[in-house]
Simulated scan of single mutants.
Amino acid sequence: MNPGDDPMNHTDDERFDQAMRALHTQAVSQVSSATRARLRVARHAAATPAGERAPRRGFGWVLASGFAAVFALAIGLQLRPTITPDAAPAAVATAPNAYDADTAVAMLDESPDLYLWLASNDDAMPTLEP
C-alpha cells in the first residue's frame, strides 16, 4: 500500500496548506496600502444592503431616559401628600393677608436677645478710627 493512498495520511494536505499560506502572505505583502483601503471600503459597502444607513445608537438612550423621567414624575405625583378638605380652610385661615410693618417692628421690640447678640459681636464689625 502506498502512503499517498491512505486517507488517514494528511502530509500532502498539510504541505499544500503551507504552500498556499506562503503564497497568500507573499501576495498580501505586495498589495499597496491604498489598494487595501479601497478593498476594505468596497467590502464594507458590499456587506451593507443598498440604501440602508448605519443604525443611529443615540436615539435609544434619549427615548429610554425620557420614559424614566415620565415614570419618576408619575411616581412622585402619586406619593405627594393630599390635602383633606378639613385641613384646607385651616391653612388658608392662618395665612396672613398682608404685610404689616408695625407688627414686624413690634416683634423686634419684644425680642431684646437680637440686640444683645448684636452688641456682643463688636469684633465682627470694623471700628472706624479717625
Results as ranks from 00 to 15, higher is better:
P3S: 09
P3C: 00
G4S: 11
G4P: 00
D5N: 11
D5P: 00
M8Y: 06
M8T: 10
H10Q: 13
D13R: 07
E14T: 09
R15K: 14
R15G: 09
F16G: 02
D17A: 10
D17G: 01
Q18M: 07
M20G: 00
L23F: 02
H24A: 14
H24S: 08
S29G: 14
S29W: 00
Q30G: 05
S33F: 04
R36K: 15
A37Q: 11
R43S: 14
A45P: 03
A45G: 06
A47T: 09
T48P: 00
P55Q: 03
R56W: 01
R57S: 07
G58A: 15
G58W: 08
G58E: 15
G58L: 12
F59K: 05
V62Q: 08
V62H: 10
V62I: 13
L63H: 08
S65P: 00
S65K: 10
G66K: 05
A68R: 07
A68F: 03
A72E: 10
A74K: 02
G76L: 04
L77Y: 01
L79Q: 14
P81A: 14
P81R: 13
I83T: 15
T84D: 12
P85R: 07
A87E: 13
P89S: 08
A91L: 15
V92Y: 03
V92T: 12
V92F: 00
A93H: 08
A93G: 06
P96Y: 05
P96V: 13
Y99G: 06
D100Y: 06
D100A: 05
D102F: 03
T103L: 13
A104M: 08
V105H: 04
V105W: 01
V105T: 05
L108Q: 10
D109V: 05
D109C: 03
S111K: 05
S111I: 04
P112V: 03
D113M: 04
D113P: 00
L114R: 06
Y115V: 07
W117M: 13
W117F: 08
S120R: 13
N121F: 02
D122R: 06
D123K: 11
A124W: 01
A124P: 00
M125L: 14
M125A: 12
M125I: 15
T127K: 10
T127W: 00
E129Q: 12
P130W: 01
